[in-house]
């Protein structure tokens, strides 16, 4: 169980990058962008094919970000200049990307098992630091019998994801970032304050998909393969992370919301891990479960609120009633 949870947190931190991208479009731009299902794979595909062709893994990952950014920009273009509905623009791009991803990979699945990836490189560097021994020693002292093979991925990915979060926080507070946030809040206003909303939307959706592609590239390298189907349902997973995070950690400020999204992504992975331990749950059920989690997370707060309101009114009425009796 400990090992499984460890893996959940590890991949959760990577998926958090994707969730941050989804947060940018869904919450900041108010743009329900479905490109994600495609651009996640694009990220994995570009990274994989580059690595196989001898590109250094870090450069390959940067290529992946660029490809995702480009895909997002095209979705943004379709929406702003082509005046296509946001949902439809995303679906069109996602569908187109399926073919493009197949072309990039030339085969439905690419294996990276015998290749040098960011993570194998990391492990070589990490091996000599002695951090693993120290942390695992601590775990053994606490009574754990099975130990994680390395802490490298967890710690380094945490640093990277937090860095991305901090950069996002900063960006959203700059003059450009404020204008970007205003697009999702009051488009007419920010246009009357001389912001080019079209260009900002295009760049915003681009950055979002760049992050999603980065997550795709990292997941492909962590798992040792890129698959043309690895992005199916990714948008719902991203949404689940955003909604779970917001519900648990709040959204008072941008910094709070982005940390909430990261937390949401990790917790989502943990939920999935726990669920998969039940015998009657099959791996294929996960998409259904994800959809159910999102639905529950969307509906529950409303039900709770309605209940509270009803209770409050009943109480008021009872008070009034008693008052009348007393008088």
């Amino acid at each position: 169980m400990l090992i499984a949870m460890f893996g959940a947190v590890e991949s959760g931190i990577i998926y958090a990058i994707m969730a941050l991208g989804v947060y940018l479009t869904f919450r900041i731009l108010d743009f329900p962008d479905l490109t994600v299902d495609g651009s996640f794979v694009t990220g994995g595909a570009v990274a994989a094919i580059s690595i196989i062709n001898g590109v250094p893994p870090v450069i390959a990952t940067i290529f992946a970000i660029g490809a995702g950014f480009l895909a997002g920009c095209i979705t943004g273009l379709l929406h702003t200049k082509g005046k296509i509905n946001a949902l439809l623009a995303g679906i069109l791009m996602m569908t187109a990307l399926y073919s493009i991803n197949l072309r990039i990979m030339d085969t439905p699945t690419l294996s990276l098992l015998n290749e040098t990836t960011i993570f194998t490189q990391l492990q070589t560097i990490w091996g000599n630091t002695g951090v693993d021994q120290a942390l695992n020693g601590l775990l053994t002292a606490m009574g754990a019998d099975r130990l994680p093979s390395t802490w490298a991925f967890l710690i380094v990915m945490l640093v990277i994801t937090i860095t991305i979060k901090l950069v996002t926080d900063f960006y959203l507070k700059t003059e450009i970032g404020l204008a970007l946030r205003a697009i999702g809040d009051n488009k007419r206003m920010i246009r009357s304050l001389s912001a080019n909303t079209d260009n900002l939307t295009i760049i915003g959706v681009g950055i979002s998909n760049g992050l999603v592609a980065l997550a795709g590239a990292l997941i492909a390298q962590l798992g040792g393969f890129a698959d043309v189907g690895m992005g199916i349902g990714m948008i719902v997973i991203g949404l689940a992370s955003v909604i779970i995070g917001e519900a648990l950690f709040g959204t008072k400020t941008v910094a709070r919301a982005t940390i909430a999204v990261i937390g949401g992504a990790i917790i989502y992975r943990m939920i999935v891990t726990v669920a998969l331990r039940f015998d009657f749950v099959e791996t294929g059920d996960m998409k259904l479960m994800t959809a159910l989690i999102v639905i529950a997370a969307l509906i529950t707060p409303k039900i709770v609120h309605a209940r509270k309101e009803k209770q409050r009114r009943l109480q008021k009425r009872a008070q009034l009633h008693q008052h009348a009796k007393g008088a």
Partner: peptide, 29 residues
């Protein structure tokens, strides 16, 4: 409701208005 962004703070709204006649940059608003 048309002239302000409701989910942003007063100072952020003012910062956006302040940038109206300048080129928006990557500096704190």
């Amino acid at each position: 409701m048309a002239g302000t962004a409701p989910s942003m703070t007063i100072e952020e709204n003012l910062a956006m208005a302040y940038a109206r006649n300048k080129k928006r940059k990557l500096v704190f608003g």
